[in-house]
């Protein structure tokens, strides 16, 4: 009985880690953009573009690295288009993000259908053309140990490379944002672009750099979906994960560590939901899966409403910076 419960908890934890990885990558991407004062609703679209470009390239070349590079390049390209519309031409950031999301949701299917003739999917990737599980050193050596062994083997080791990239991205992004000159400028541009401009730092250049950062991280998130988690691109495979990442970013109050926590929480809810699927729980009975699916969104609304904590956005978010009228 206890062994069963332990196994379930371990499997849930492993599923949480796998589900959280793309959310973490995309949310940290959004963190760059939003801390620089640019609303990034386009996380969803950038992930989807990258997922398609990565799977398509990996399928054609047979190389997972070429796929990853293509995914990042495609995602950065869309980030730059967002910058062109919002930073260079002072366009509405939400409108631009929605435009990219909608364009991409159609474009990936149109191109996939025309190029691969499999109804909008890309061909199934061979094991060499996708990110396989990585066994961390000592996984087999620690295996005989009773509790630690299986936790290490199931939860920590044995994921694909991009999961570890996502884990490493949290401290790296935190260091970049809080400990470097670029990070200081990034945060300043998001709070008071006028002051940064007066100090002789280009607001536009800083925001473009932030958007490229967002593009790279969303590219990793997209490649994770199609070349690590799945073995092909499927239409609309981001399935709202970009919006969920945005919710996690807000829930994490635009800070790296709390955002990581929010991503883990949302991924855990999803793992529980997949695990339950109609199994009755003690005391409460059958919990509808849709209720669990809605939890992240309800929580985010509650946070925004100030019911739990308070989310304070970067002050200049959503406002195009116009140097002089």
């Amino acid at each position: 009985m206890i062994a069963d419960a332990f196994l379930i908890v371990t499997l849930l934890a492993a599923a949480t880690v796998r589900g959280a990885a793309p959310l973490i990558l995309a949310a940290l991407g959004g963190l760059f953009a939003e801390r620089s004062g640019v609303v990034d609703i386009g996380l969803e679209g950038k992930m989807l573009t990258a997922a398609f470009a990565a799977a398509a390239t990996a399928a054609v070349t047979g190389s997972v690295w070429a796929g990853l590079a293509a995914g990042i390049a495609a995602s950065v390209l869309f980030a730059l288009m967002h910058g062109f519309a919002c930073v260079t031409h002072h366009g509405n950031q939400v409108v631009s993000g929605m435009a990219l999301n909608i364009t991409v949701s159609g474009l990936t299917v149109v191109l996939g259908y025309a190029w691969f003739r499999e109804g909008g999917q890309t061909p199934l990737l061979a094991p060499g053309a996708r990110f396989g599980p990585v066994d961390l050193p000592g996984a087999s050596a620690l295996a005989p140990l009773p509790v630690i062994g299986s936790i290490y083997r199931e939860v920590i080791s044995g994921h694909n490379l991009l999961v570890y990239v996502a884990a490493a991205a949290v401290p790296i992004v935190a260091w970049l944002v809080y400990r470097t000159r670029f990070g200081l400028r990034l945060r300043a541009v998001g709070e008071s672009p006028g002051a940064v401009d007066t100090a002789g730092v280009s607001v536009a250049a800083t925001r473009y750099m932030a958007l490229v950062g967002s593009g790279i991280l969303c590219g990793l998130a997209g490649a994770y979906l199609s070349t690590a988690h799945h073995a092909s691109f499927i239409r609309d495979m981001s399935a709202g994960k970009g919006y969920l990442a945005l919710a996690a970013l807000i829930f994490g109050q635009w800070r790296p560590l709390p955002t990581l926590g929010a991503c883990l929480l949302f991924a855990f809810a999803d793992a529980v939901q997949l695990r339950l699927q109609g199994t009755p729980l003690p005391l409460v009975g059958v919990v509808p899966v849709q209720l669990i699916q809605a939890i992240p969104y309800v929580l985010t609304v509650c946070l925004l409403a100030g019911v739990v904590g308070r989310a304070v956005a970067p002050r200049a978010i959503g406002v195009p910076y116009v140097k002089e009228r």
Binding site: N92, V95, S96, A99, I102, T103, G106, V109
Partner: peptide, 16 residues
Amino acid sequence: DMVVVIQGLIILVCGA
């Protein structure tokens, strides 16, 4: 789905 592409591009051009 080409229609969705056109829709997205119209939002981009008319809006953003």
